[in-house]
Each structure stands twice: as C-alpha cells, then as structure tokens.
Amino acid sequence: MAEHNGLDGKLMTIGEAVERFVRDGCQIAVGGFTITRNPMAAVYEIARRRIKDLHLVAHSNGQALDVLVGAGCVSRLDIAYGGNGRFAPTCIRFRKAVERGELLVEDYTNNMMSLRFLAGALGVPFIPSKSGLGTDLIAQEGFPAELRGSDGVPSKKVIVIDDPFGNEDDEVVLLPALTPDVSIIHAQQVSTDGTVRIKGLTFADLEQCKAASAVVVTCEEIVPESYLRLDPDQNALPPFLVDAVVTVPYGAHPTACRYFYDYDPAHLNHYKAVAKDDETWAAYLDEWVYGVESWDAYLDKVGGAQLARIRSNTVAGYALGLDRR
C-alpha cells in the first residue's frame, strides 16, 4: 500500500501534474457540475501558474469555470451553463468577462456537450441529437470564422440535416466531437493500481476522461487495490486511462464531494459578495489563490471548525442540517 507500486510513476503533486499536462493554449475539460466535485485544487494551481489562453470545454462546471475565467486563464469557452445554483444564477466573473468582450463563447446545451464528449470517447467525428431545432443555439455561431477548422475548433458549430434513414420528414442536429488535450477530475478514491471510484453522480466526467488525450485525477484518498476489487461495480475508470494521480484531501472545496464533505455555504456566499467588484475580486485571488503557499495553508485558512461543519454525514453523504443561508 505505502509504495503504490501499481501507479508506475503516475503519483505526483498537483504542481507536477499541472506542469506536465496543462499548457498555454491547450483545450481542457474539468469534472464536476456547479457546486459538486469541481477539481478546485487543480484549478487554483492553474491560476497560480498564470496559464493563459485555455480553451475550456464545459457543460455546467460552475465554480471551476468562474475561477479559471476570473483569473484570466481562459480565452475560448464551449459551454452549456455558466451558473452556480442558488449561489450565483449566473457565474459572476464569467458574466463580467463576456459582457466586457474578454472571452469568446460558443453556447451549447448540457445534452449537446455530454454527447460531444461521448462522440470523442467513441472515436466518431460527430453525433446526432434532437435538441435545439429552431432555436438560436443552432442559428448563431459564437466563434468567428477565422478560428474555425483548426486548434480543436470544428469547422461549423452544428449541422442540421434530414434523417438520412428517411424514415419520416425529420431533422436532426449533428454535433462535432470533442477531444480535449487534458481532462481533470476530482474523485473520492483511487486505488494503488490507478482504478478510480466516484461516489454519487458522475455527470459527464467519464465521457470527458475517455475523450481526452490525457487524464489527471485528484482524489480524497488512495486506497488498496484489493479494496476497489471487492466491489468493481462501484468503479468508474480503469487504470489504463489515468495519467496522473494526485492526493488532495478537500480538493474540491468549496464545492461538495459526496460522503466526504458538503459544499461550503460560507465560502460560496463570501465568493458571491467579493466576485462582484474588481478590487475585492483581485484581493480574493491574492488571498485564496496566489498568496497560498501550499494546500495545507489553504485548509488552515478555511479552518478546522468550518471543515468539521461541512463534513458529510456517513449515511446521507452530505452534512445533515448544515446552515446553508
């Protein structure tokens, strides 16, 4: 167990993983959805390294999306939803960046983005859908023509055709596949051989990882291979898809990680207040991202009492009765 033999050099620090797999201008997918299981420790490391011009491909990755956009790391975005539930009906830094013209956005839907990752995973160039016929999601392209056809940007946003099987007069929307350079997710457990276990909803994490050229998994804990082999029905990804494994307890904070901790309402409410203003936002980044020298220091800043408050109930998988106002 202690030697993690099966990990074959995949075990690394968050700094090493980001250094190796995330470069200026690359196309990146992050796991999770709004306030759950966003790989925040990795997001903070990307921001700290001042990585630029990322093409983020996302369905609804609320908190990770907003910090990456707010820290100026993203120049292109494929997205379905830039919101964070009741904490931010529209993600605050995302909204400002779009209104200021600092970000190129291509709008899709959650179904479309999930299918685009699935197509990438299956090795097909496109996939049909019945979503969006007659809407501006089909009529309006967000990316300019000069960007199209290279750098992971498809030649067209979508193509509408008649059902080629001709069963009835029936249009379908063809969606281009996504094959990101790297997919980063946060999981509850990785075994000593690199098998990944995700508890609770998987969102599109599995399709994202299968579609990507490289996969980084941050996790709450590494457990013996024999333990994950006891109940393989619960496992999410095989070892041979995983390129880097990083142990980061509370690595999704302030988003939730089922059975480990809830989202942190105090932090998310603080975020909502400071993200509205450029000066207080800059101070937030200094305080919580740039000025934090280690993950231990980050957790000390959150505080032991707060981490205890958001700790999940062992049975329910979230913090029962947590004050979420």
Binding site: Y81, S131, L133
Partner: peptide, 18 residues
C-alpha cells in the same frame, strides 16, 4: 456583444426539445 449575459441553456433547451 451582450448587454447582459445569463447562464445559458444548461438543460433547459434539451427539456424544451425532448
């Protein structure tokens, strides 16, 4: 060049479609 940007579809367009 939007005056106000909102969250976007999420799954709303999909539910409206399907």
């Amino acid at each position: 060049a939007p005056k106000v940007r909102f969250s976007g579809s999420g799954g709303a367009c999909d539910a409206g479609s399907l």
